[in-house]
Design a protein around this nucleic acid. Structure first.
Lengths: 244, 244
DNA sequence: TGCAGAAATTGGTTGGACCATTGGACCACT
DNA sequence: AGTGGTCCAATGGTCCAACCAATTTCTGCA
């Protein structure tokens, strides 16, 4: 007998059921991020569950960043939801130290190289043009603002992730990116942080335009290597200054 | 005026305070993953808050995978906690279609290769012995159960991620693994799914034991390639059968 | 000694109450 | 018209007391 023909019945799954119903509601009403959800009391009444149960469900969503609750105002959608969502809570033990920063870079090194290679394989002429546009904007900003181009830099990279055709790249790398910069608003006192990576943006682009996956991968690795070097230099500097 | 000079004040944060107290408790008692923490009722009494508030806090932790609640039994720690923990919940919409499955493999290809390389760089003799032990168990299971060794297979890989020294590898790949297997309990009717990947487990191990990062990377890529082949074969088969 | 059933324990749910914050309506004064 | 003040209803946050459901532990009989 097929074991799947008798799935275990769900006697308890109240809050999960609430979330499922909520997903249905959001889709039915075509709610966009920023819009307000029904109040907890209304949800409890409509779904025939206790308000506490509704709250537990919403607490879950709040923890996942899907929803924001404002006392006295309401509960607001923060991101798009869909029935088959995968939640991947990354918990990152570790603080501000060199090791943690380096770990985010190890992940980025792996994903950045793969994304660049896939991008080089799959980019359409329109995609290549879009990436070149971002590159131009970034190089322009870099020159006029003397190296302060992190925003445009990031957009260039995001364009590559998008063209790779796999949205997972953008989301995971974005998480690493945020993690990295949360600690490093002022990168350990390295004034010219990121300068060394500048030329590789163009070389990556050229490999993509030339449909050269292996080249793109290699250039992406070089780019991350320069960031790792900057990080090591900053750490060494910090170590030195703390010894005084 | 500096917009940052007037940050929003923080008046209430009951459940956050509960979590902070809980972090302190876990550290004070040196609780290890798997151990049970106090019951909700006791926590409520000790912290002088309502049980509902305790539950909201625990619901948060459960959503982050830090804790597991078993009705009638208790609440158990699932991962180490530390005061300066960063939570980064990723949510993405993934379908059960061929494309989504393939996308998880693209991420795994990148990370698996990097993790294997780092593992080969950093493994201590004890680490190598541990990995070999997992490999033996897996090969044994593979032979006695005729290829059904996915559990032991996964433990072998996890050992590699751990030795890589970067916990992010295990967390991200675990998410990909779960996404992949959620839809693929019975892999599209490919009976010998995973058989082709079998020999590469030992070749990866040999590269790690030989401290050969490039070799480990290459073998890991070959392993993922076999899984991708299996997936493509399964998809082709499915397409064929749906045309009848 | 072994084991079935009772009892205690523990998380899950309910309903109801009150508090704190929010945002809009309304008003008085300038 | 605009400014500030007051009030009030709506909404999320917290609390309480009880009961339900799953699990574990204990107990007493065979």
């Amino acid at each position: 007998m097929d074991q799947n023909s008798l799935p275990p019945i769900q006697t308890t799954a109240r809050d999960d059921a609430v979330l499922k119903a909520l997903v249905g509601f959001v889709r039915a009403e075509a709610l966009q991020p920023g819009e307000r959800l029904p109040t907890e009391r209304i949800l409890a009444e409509r779904l025939k569950v206790s308000r506490n149960t509704v709250r537990e469900a919403l607490t879950r969503w709040e923890g996942l960043g899907l929803v924001e609750r404002r006392q006295g105002s309401g509960t607001y959608l923060k991101a798009a939801v869909s029935p088959d969502m995968l939640h991947m809570p990354l918990t990152f033990a570790g603080g501000n130290d060199f090791t943690s920063l380096m770990q985010t870079l190890e992940i980025r090194r792996a994903l950045e190289a793969e994304a660049a290679a896939l991008c080089a394989e799959r980019a359409s002429p329109a995609d290549v043009a879009e990436i070149e546009r971002k590159l131009d904007i970034m190089e322009q900003a870099f020159r006029t603002r003397d190296g302060m181009s992190s925003e445009e830099d990031w957009e260039f990279h995001q364009a590559i992730y998008r063209v790779s055709g796999n949205p997972l790249f953008e989301q995971i790398i974005a998480a690493m990116h945020e993690l990295f910069h949360r600690f490093w608003e002022h990168p350990l006192g390295v004034r010219d942080f990121g300068h060394a990576s500048f030329p590789y943006h163009r070389t990556i682009y050229e490999c993509i335009a030339a449909r050269d996956p292996q080249g793109a991968r290699a250039e992406a690795l070089k780019l991350i290597a320069t960031v790792e070097d900057d990080l090591k230099r900053g750490a060494a500097k910090l170590k030195l200054s703390s010894q005084t």
